[in-house]
């Protein structure tokens, strides 16, 4: 679905501050890919580059990011570099930005914000019909129907985050890029949202890319894990394998820092770390 080929990404119009350094990765259909890494390692930057959002002054200096999407309706195949993805936004792909506090328009009700930007195929039926479907969808995230008529400031941070996840998922896209969608949530709600996202992914058989610096989250839901460190991918593979047999020091430390998993500390398996 997405092929990232030795891509170097950074910021700045005059100078160039490197944030992602020669990364290659391919993201397939029907899978959940996790991206982990410490803060500032370039996770969000990579996501923006994949989504094709160049508004922050982001630049792809080297390498290519290409996508291959199949239009569900007419079966037409679209192949394009990420700089052309904007035509696919909120249709083939959707995005959950990091930090949910001011992402929603303060003067617009939640219902309108869900509807705004929806592709035609998802708008079918009467307004009441659409509202019904949105309400049912939100219920899956533990949000009541009253949320639809609320303004963002009336919701808690966690509720807003759930709304953002729901907005992105309701689009029914082939690819969802989620940048730390559960950071503001307590563990119980977090688990609920993650399960919801997995369920949606399994049902739609689309692709979910999930950024989180919390390895526990990845352990719970991702099929494949990518570990980033200082702008580079230092390790990638099936999640279970990485947890069982981490190769890179950084990954080992990350796993070591996790609380107990299944009764035994993963650090036991690593043995003597230097």
């Amino acid at each position: 679905m997405i092929t990232i080929d030795k891509v170097t990404v950074g910021y700045g119009t005059a100078g160039f501050i490197k944030a992602v350094d020669g990364v290659s990765l391919s993201i397939g259909d029907n899978e959940i890919v996790g991206i982990a890494g410490e803060t500032g390692s370039g996770k969000s930057t990579l996501m923006r580059a994949v989504y094709g959002d160049f508004s922050t002054g982001l630049r792809i200096k080297d390498g290519t990011i290409t996508g291959r999407f199949v239009d569900q309706k007419n079966g037409q195949v679209i192949e394009a570099p990420s700089s052309r993805f904007h035509r696919l936004w909120w249709d083939q792909m959707s995005y959950i930005p990091q930090g949910s506090m001011s992402v929603l328009n303060p003067l617009m009700k939640i219902e309108a914000q869900v509807v705004d930007g929806l592709p035609k195929r998802e708008r079918g039926g009467s307004r009441a019909d659409l509202r019904r479907r949105i309400a049912d969808f939100l219920a899956g995230f533990g949000l009541e129907e009253t949320v639809l008529d609320a303004y963002p400031h009336q919701l808690s941070g966690g509720m807003r985050q759930r709304v953002l996840v729901a907005i992105a998922a309701f689009v029914n896209p082939r690819l969802i890029l989620a940048d730390e969608p559960t950071t503001a949530l307590d563990v119980v709600v977090q688990k609920k949202i993650l399960l919801m996202m997995v369920e949606i992914q399994r049902r739609l058989r689309n692709t979910l890319v999930l950024v989180s610096h919390d390895l526990g989250v990845h352990y719970q839901i991702t099929d494949r894990l990518v570990i980033m460190y200082k702008g580079q991918i230092v390790e990638t593979g099936p999640t279970a394998e990485i947890f069982a047999n981490p190769q890179h020091d950084y990954t080992r430390n990350l796993i070591a820092a996790l609380p107990r998993l299944h009764g035994k500390r993963s650090v036991d398996r690593v043995g003597e770390a230097p």
């Binding site: 989504y51 959002d53 508004s55 904007h86 035509r87 696919l88 936004w89 909120w90 249709d91 959707s94 995005y95 930005p97 992402v103 929603l104 328009n105 705004d116 930007g117």
Partner: peptide
């Protein structure tokens, strides 16, 4: 920015 990412 988010509105733009929505393709509006």
């Amino acid at each position: 920015r988010y509105a733009r990412l929505k393709g509006l």
